[in-house]
Every structure is written in C-alpha cells, then in structure tokens.
Amino acid sequence: MQIFVKTATGKTITLEVEPSDTIENVKAKIQDKEGIPPDQQRLAFAGKQLEDGRTLSDYNIQKESTLHLALR
C-alpha cells in the first residue's frame, strides 16, 4: 500500500509499505529515499509519536495515510 510522509520542510515522500511493516522498517525506507538516518527520525500520526517496534497496523495506519516526520 502507499503512504505519504510529510517532512518538516513541507516535502511529501511517497512510500510503498505493508500494514505489517514496523515503524523501524518505514524509517529505513525513508533513509533509502532521503538519506536521513533512522535514529534522527521521529514519526507521528494523528498526533501520536510512533514507536520503532510497533507496526503500521498497530496504529491503524491505512493506505494513503500521511505520517509526519520530524528530525531530532
């Protein structure tokens, strides 16, 4: 499925993911596309910060959802 990640600079990244993917996997995909190390990424959805060990389906993130990326 496709999801979107909006960066602090307003850029939107499109990612191909599975509901079973962990947040860690998603951060690795962002690193592949943007070169941002996962340990510098903070992802949020619906106002909640997402934890590495959880999956997209844990957070009820569905196709075409938009996550927000902040850098630490």
Score class of each variant (00 low, 15 high):
Ile61Asp: 00
Gly35Tyr: 04
Asp32Leu: 12
Leu43Gly: 00
Asp21Asn: 09
Lys11Arg: 09
Ala8Trp: 08
Asp39Ser: 15
Asn25Ala: 12
Lys63Val: 08
Leu71Thr: 10
Gln49Arg: 10
Glu51Leu: 07
Asp58Pro: 01
Pro38His: 13
Gly47Asn: 07
Val17Arg: 00
Ile13Met: 07
Ala70His: 15
Leu56Met: 05
Gln62Lys: 10
Ala46Lys: 14
Leu69Met: 06
Gln41Ala: 04
Arg72Lys: 14
Ala70Arg: 07
Lys29Trp: 05
Ala44Ser: 14
Leu67His: 01
Asp32Thr: 10
Thr55Tyr: 07
Ala70Glu: 09
Lys6Tyr: 09
Gln40Gly: 06
Leu15Tyr: 02
Phe45Val: 04
Thr7Asn: 11
Ile3Gly: 00
Ile36Tyr: 09
Lys27Thr: 02
Arg72Gln: 11
Phe45Ile: 06
Ser65Pro: 02
Ala8Ser: 14
Glu16Tyr: 14
Glu64Arg: 08
Leu71Ser: 13
Ile30Gly: 00
Glu51Asn: 09
Ser57Ile: 10
Leu15Gln: 01
Thr7Ala: 07
Gln41Val: 06
Leu69Ile: 05
Asn25Ile: 13
Leu67Gln: 01
Ser20Ala: 10
Met1Ile: 10
Leu56Ala: 02
Gly10His: 12
Glu34Lys: 05
Thr9His: 13
Thr12Arg: 11
Lys29Tyr: 10
Pro38Ile: 13
Asp21Thr: 12
Pro37Tyr: 05
Thr66His: 15
Gln2Ile: 13
Thr9Glu: 15
Arg42Val: 15
Ala44Val: 15
Lys33Tyr: 12
Lys27Pro: 00
Thr22Gly: 04
Lys33Pro: 02
Thr66Ser: 05
Thr55Ile: 07
Val26Gln: 00
Gln62Val: 10
Thr7Val: 09
Gly53Met: 09
Lys63Trp: 09
Lys63Gly: 14
Ile23Ala: 03
Val17Ala: 06
Arg42Ile: 15
Thr22Phe: 13
Lys48Gly: 07
Val5Phe: 03
Gly35Met: 05
Leu67Asp: 01
Gln2Met: 10
Gly10Val: 05
Leu67Lys: 01
Glu34Trp: 10
Val5Ser: 01
Ile3Met: 04
Leu50Ser: 01
Thr14Gly: 06
Gly47Cys: 04
Pro38Met: 10
Glu24Cys: 05
Pro19Phe: 09
Gln40His: 13
Glu34Phe: 09
Glu64His: 15
Gly53Phe: 12
Leu50Tyr: 01
Gln40Pro: 02
Leu69His: 02
Gly35Pro: 03
Gln2Ala: 13
Ala8Cys: 05
Thr14Ile: 09
Glu34His: 06
Pro37Val: 07
Val5Pro: 00
Asn25Pro: 01
Leu15Thr: 02
Asp58Tyr: 13
Val26Thr: 06
Gln31Trp: 14
Thr22Val: 14
Tyr59His: 03
Val17Tyr: 05
Asp58Gly: 04
Ile61Val: 09
Gly53Ser: 12
Ala28Ile: 14
Pro19Ala: 13
Gly10Leu: 09
Arg72Tyr: 09
Gln49His: 15
Glu18Leu: 13
Asp32His: 13
Leu50Asn: 00
Leu71Asn: 11
Leu15Met: 05
Thr66Lys: 05
Asp39Ile: 12
Thr22Pro: 10
Gln62Pro: 10
Gln41Phe: 11
Ala28Asp: 15
Gln2Tyr: 12
Gln49Tyr: 07
Ile3Pro: 00
Asp52Pro: 07
Ile23His: 02
Ala46Trp: 12
Phe4Trp: 06
Asn25Val: 11
Gly10Lys: 06
Lys48His: 15
Ser20Asp: 15
Lys29Asn: 07
Ser65Gly: 05
Leu56Gly: 00
Arg54Leu: 12
Thr12Asn: 08
Lys27Gly: 01
Lys29Pro: 00
Ala44Ile: 12
Val26Asn: 00
Leu69Thr: 02
Asp21His: 08
Asn25Arg: 11
Leu56Ile: 08
Tyr59Gly: 01
Lys6His: 14
Gln62Leu: 13
Val17Thr: 05
Thr14Asp: 08
Lys63Arg: 11
Leu50Gly: 01
Met1Pro: 02
Leu15Lys: 00
Ile61Lys: 00
Leu43Tyr: 03
Gly53Asp: 15
Ile23Gly: 02
Glu64Ile: 03
Ala28Asn: 12
Ile36Leu: 06
Lys29Gln: 12
Ile13Glu: 01
Glu64Thr: 07
Arg42Tyr: 11
Asp52Asn: 15
Gly47Leu: 04
Pro19Lys: 08
Leu56Cys: 03
Ser57Arg: 09
Thr14Ser: 13
Ala70Gln: 11
Ile30Lys: 00
Glu51Asp: 12
Arg54Ser: 12
Phe45Leu: 06
Leu43Val: 03
Arg42Asn: 13
Ala70Thr: 11
Glu64Val: 03
Gly35Lys: 07
His68Met: 08
His68Arg: 06
Asp52Phe: 04
Lys27Leu: 03
Glu51Ser: 06
Lys48Glu: 12
Gly53Ala: 12
Thr22Gln: 06
Ala46Cys: 05
Arg54Gln: 08
His68Lys: 05
Ile30Glu: 00
Lys33Val: 13
Phe45Lys: 03
Gly35Thr: 04
Gln41Pro: 01
Arg54Pro: 05
Ile23Phe: 03
Gly53Cys: 04
Ile61Gly: 00
Asn60Cys: 04
Pro19Trp: 07
Lys11Ile: 15
Ala46Pro: 02
Ile3Ala: 01
Pro37Trp: 05
Ile36Asn: 03
Arg72Ala: 14
Leu71Cys: 05
Thr12Glu: 06
Val5Gly: 01
Glu51Tyr: 07
Thr12Gly: 04
Lys11Gln: 09
Val17Met: 06
Thr22His: 08
Asp21Tyr: 14
Gly53Trp: 14
Arg54Ala: 12
Ile13Val: 07
Glu16Asn: 13
Pro38Asp: 04
Val5Trp: 01
Lys33Phe: 10
Thr7Gly: 07
Ala46Thr: 06
Leu43Trp: 02
Phe45Tyr: 15
Gln31Arg: 11
Glu24Met: 14
Lys6Gly: 04
Gly35His: 06
Pro19Ser: 10
Val17Gly: 02
Ile30Pro: 00
Glu16His: 14
Gly53Lys: 14
Leu50Thr: 02
Gln2Asn: 15
Asp52Lys: 04
Lys29Arg: 08
Thr9Leu: 10
Ala8His: 15
Met1His: 05
Val26Phe: 02
Arg72Phe: 11
Thr9Asp: 11
Gln31Thr: 11
Asp58Ser: 13
Ile61Gln: 01
Leu43Met: 03
Pro38Leu: 15
Ala46Ser: 12
Gly35Cys: 04
Glu18Ser: 11
Glu16Cys: 04
Leu50Pro: 01
Lys29Ala: 08
Ser65Lys: 03
Glu18His: 10
Ala8Lys: 10
Ile30Leu: 08
Lys48Cys: 04
Ala8Asn: 11
Gln41Asp: 01
Ala70Asp: 08
Asn25Trp: 11
Lys48Leu: 12
Gly35Ser: 07
Ser57Leu: 14
Leu50Gln: 01
Lys29Cys: 03
Val17Asp: 00
Ser20Arg: 10
Gln2Thr: 09
Gln62Ile: 11
Gln49Ser: 11
Lys6Pro: 01
Ile13Arg: 02
Ala8Leu: 09
Asp58Trp: 11
Phe45Met: 05
Met1Lys: 02
Leu15Cys: 03
Val5Tyr: 02
Asp32Ser: 14
Lys33Met: 12
Asp39Trp: 13
Lys6Ile: 14
Lys48Pro: 02
Leu71Pro: 08
Glu64Tyr: 11
Tyr59Val: 02
His68Asn: 06
Leu71His: 08
Glu34Thr: 10
Asp39Ala: 12
Val5Glu: 00
Ile13Gly: 01
Lys33Asp: 04
Gln40Phe: 09
Gln2His: 14
Ala44Glu: 15
Leu67Tyr: 01
Gln2Phe: 13
Arg54Lys: 13
Val17His: 03
Thr22Lys: 11
Asp39Tyr: 10
Leu67Cys: 02
Thr55Asn: 06
Asp39Val: 14
Pro19Met: 14
Glu51Thr: 08
Gln41Lys: 01
Tyr59Asn: 03
